[in-house]
């Protein structure tokens, strides 16, 4: 299977980052970047990256299952991640998550019917001092009140 020229370039560079014979080290970055482009980690991606890293598909599966950011099923176009860990919890993270469920009409690790949004209750994302925090895709949003959350979602809804 082929990826975009840019991604192929990225992969080519990656493989030069490690000591001779240790190219397997590129696996996790490759999985992350491939997921960003393909939308999820499909069986094809698994076999392809296994080939490129010189390991078995099973060895790739072992890795995928371990990391919570690697998904086999497609996420929404906008993956909304709400932190409810301690610092966020103290300042309304849990209420924010419940609000998000209502606002998007979906629950943990679910995707909206139109495939636009997916929701995930996540662990500390390193925004504790600006809590409650959420990430939409890779973008951070800090001190998110339910109102601010609605504005963010509505804005995204407008885009499409």
């Amino acid at each position: 299977m082929n990826f975009s020229p840019q991604l192929e370039q990225k992969f080519a560079d990656l493989l030069t980052h490690y000591p001779e014979g240790r190219q397997r080290a590129a696996l996790i970055p490759m999985l992350m970047f491939a997921q960003d482009e393909v939308g999820s980690i499909t069986p094809d991606v698994v076999t392809e990256l296994a080939k490129r890293c010189g390991i078995t598909p099973l060895q790739v599966d072992e890795v995928i299952g371990f990391y919570s950011m690697l998904h086999r099923k497609p996420l929404g176009k906008y993956h909304v991640q709400v932190c409810t860990n301690i610092s966020c919890l103290l300042v309304g993270g849990e209420e924010l998550y419940e609000h998000a469920c209502k606002k998007l009409g979906i629950g943990h690790k679910q995707v909206t019917a139109d495939g636009q949004f997916s929701l995930e209750e996540v662990e500390c994302m390193g925004a504790c001092s600006w809590a409650p925090a959420i990430q939409i895709g890779y973008d951070f949003h800090h001190a998110v009140s339910p109102q601010k959350f609605d504005q963010l979602i509505d804005a995204l809804r407008k885009i499409q």
Binding site: H17, R22, R24, A25, A26, L27, I28, P29, L31, M32, C53, I55, E62, V63, F66, Y67, S68, M69, L70, E123
Partner: peptide, 23 residues
């Protein structure tokens, strides 16, 4: 080098395993 979502990979030896493309 990017991680992929695992607190345990902050532990130094687990980080090294992860850096080598493993669990």
């Amino acid at each position: 080098q990017t991680g992929a979502g695992a607190y345990e990979c902050g532990e130094e030896s687990a980080l090294l395993e992860s850096l080598e493309g493993k669990r």
